[in-house]
Simulated assay, not measured.
Amino acid sequence: MGRGRAKAKQTKVARELKYHSPNTDLTALQRELGSGSTSSDSDERDADDEDLDDDPGDRWSPRR
């Protein structure tokens, strides 16, 4: 037993999160979103994607 208190606390926390939104610092959020990724970051991700083979089955096939 002993799960009653833990469940009650979880229910209380969940209810607070559901019905009471925390204060949001919109200026900090705007600064964070405004400093998004640069084009060089996305170019690096594209280069990594090109290294992958088109056939994912080759990855698991036995080497010959």
Rank of each mutant, 00 (worst) to 15 (best):
D51E: 15
A14H: 11
A8E: 10
A14I: 03
A6S: 05
E44I: 13
S35K: 14
Q10Y: 01
Y19P: 00
E32W: 04
E44H: 10
A14Q: 10
T27R: 06
G57I: 04
R15D: 05
R45Y: 06
L52S: 03
R59L: 14
S61H: 10
K18C: 00
R45D: 06
T38C: 02
G57M: 08
D55T: 02
R45N: 04
R15G: 04
G36C: 06
R15Q: 09
E44C: 02
D41I: 07
T24Q: 12
G36R: 13
S40L: 14
G34W: 06
R63Y: 11
K7Y: 02
L33F: 11
R63D: 05
E32A: 13
R45I: 05
S37D: 13
R63H: 05
E16R: 12
Q30D: 12
D49A: 15
P62T: 07
R5S: 09
L52D: 12
R15T: 08
L26M: 13
D43Q: 13
N23E: 14
G2P: 05
S40A: 15
M1Y: 09
D55Q: 06
H20G: 00
E32F: 04
R45L: 12
Q10E: 13
D54F: 09
S37E: 15
Y19G: 01
T38G: 11
T27H: 01
R63M: 07
L26I: 07
K18T: 06
S39P: 04
P22M: 02
S39A: 14
K18S: 02
A28S: 03
G36E: 04
E44Y: 11
P22F: 02
S37M: 10
T38W: 02
T24H: 10
M1N: 04
E32L: 09
L33A: 10
G36K: 08
